[in-house]
Nucleic acid binder design. Structure first.
Lengths: 193, 193
DNA sequence: TCCGAAATAGACAGACCTGTCTGTTTTGAT
DNA sequence: ATCAAAACAGACAGGTCTGTCTATTTCGGA
C-alpha cells in the first residue's frame, strides 16, 4: 500500500525529510509568525517525526535561523540574477520594479527579516545575526548602485534608497502595492535631482 | 505596616489598578512583544490580581488592543501638539525632525503598530483595526502637509512621505538614528523639486 | 539476505499559557 | 461604624509549548 499523502504535505512529499521540514517551517513561519507556529504544527504538516527535526536542526531557534537564512539567500540570489539583466546605471531605480513585483506576489505579508526583529527581542538570537548580515549586504548593493547611477552624493542616496526600500516593504504589507509604487516614484526623483 | 512596593512596580505603584495594569502591559509588550509576555508577568510587575485584569479588560487580546490604542493616541497627541509649533508649509519636512527625536529615545525598538502586524497575523484582531485606523489618520496628515507645502503633486508626495516615514521607523530599529536622518534628507529633496 | 543508518510513532517531563472560580482583605461612602 | 464594591491571593482546569527518550519500522547497499 502506498504511503499516505495528506493534503497539507503534498507539495514536498517524498523529498528528504530535512527539506520537507524546512519547506514546511519556512511556509508556516512566514505566514503566521515564528512564535505562533509550534514544532508540532511543522511536524504534522511536514509528515515528519520529532526526532528528525531535532536530529537535523538541534532546536526550534536553529530551525527559525535556517528559515531566515533560506529567505535571505533566496533574496540575494534573486537580486544578483535580476541585476545581470539591468545596466549598472539603471539598477538603483529599477530595483524598485523588483520590489513592486515582490509585494504583488500572492500571500505577500511583508519582509520575514523585519518580522524576526519584531518577534524575537533577543539580539543574540541566531536568526538576528543573519538579519544583520543581510542588511550589511543590502547596504553594499545600494551604495554600488548609487555610485553607478552617478549621483552627486552616492552615500546619502544609498541611505535614502535603503529607507525607501524598508518603507516600501512594510508599508505594502499594510496598504498594498501602491506603497511600493510610491517608493519607486520617490526613488526616481532622488536619482534624477 | 505600609504596603510593600517592589522595585519593578515602583513607577506607578499606588495608582488605580487599571492604570497600573495598562502601564505595565504597555511597557512589557513594547519591549518584548505581545506574544512573548504572558499575563502572569504583567500581573506580577503591576502588583495586581488576575481577577482585576479580567474585570477591566476582558481578555488578553483586549489588553493588547488597549496597549495599541494608547500608543496610537499618544502619537496623535504628540503630532497634533508638535504641529502647532510649525508653520503649515514646513510641516511635511519638519515632521521628520519629530521622527528623528523619536528614534533617538532610550529603549526605542521600532513602531509598536508595525510590530503588532508582524506578531498577530489575524486581520480581525481588535488591535489590528486600531492600526488600520491610525494609518488612515496618518495618511490624511501627510496629504494635508503636502498640500500646505505647495508641491506639484501633493498626493504622490504624501504617499512617498508615508513610505519614507515607515522606512525611517523600521530602518532605525535595525540600524539606528542615521536612517531617520537619511529619511529627512530624502524628504527634503522630494519637497524641494 | 542481512545490517546499519535513518526515519517514524508517540509517550513523557516540565514549563508556561489563558481564563475561571472561590474566598479574603481592603477601601471608601454613608 | 457599617456595608457594598473593588482588589487581592491563589488554586485550578485544560491546553500548548519545547525537548528527550524509547521502541519500532523503513530502506539501501554489501
Amino acid at each position: 500500500m502506498p504511503k499516505k499523502i495528506s493534503a497539507t504535505e503534498s507539495i514536498t512529499a517524498g523529498a528528504p525529510v530535512r527539506e520537507r521540514l524546512l519547506d514546511t517551517a519556512d511556509r508556516l513561519f512566514y505566514r503566521e509568525g515564528v512564535r505562533a507556529v509550534g514544532i508540532d504544527r511543522v511536524l504534522a504538516e511536514a509528515g515528519a517525526a520529532k526526532a528528525s527535526l531535532y536530529a537535523h536542526f538541534g532546536s526550534k531557534d536553529d530551525l527559525v535561523a535556517a528559515h531566515v537564512e533560506r529567505r535571505a539567500a533566496a533574496a540575494r540570489g534573486q537580486i544578483e540574477a535580476w541585476q545581470l539583466k539591468v545596466p549598472p546605471a539603471e539598477r538603483a531605480l529599477r530595483f524598485f520594479d523588483w520590489v513592486v513585483e515582490w509585494t504583488r506576489t500572492e500571500g505577500y505579508r511583508g519582509c520575514p527579516l523585519q518580522h524576526i526583529v519584531a518577534e524575537v527581542c533577543d539580539p543574540q538570537h541566531p536568526a538576528r545575526t543573519i538579519v544583520a548580515a543581510q542588511r550589511a549586504w543590502m547596504q553594499g548593493k545600494f551604495l554600488e548602485w548609487s555610485k553607478a547611477a552617478r549621483v552627486a552624493d552616492p552615500r546619502a542616496v544609498a541611505g535614502a534608497l535603503y529607507v525607501l526600500f524598508d518603507g516600501a516593504v512594510v508599508a505594502s504589507e499594510h496598504d498594498g502595492v501602491r506603497r511600493a509604487r510610491e517608493a519607486r516614484w520617490a526613488a526616481e526623483r532622488l536619482l534624477a535631482g
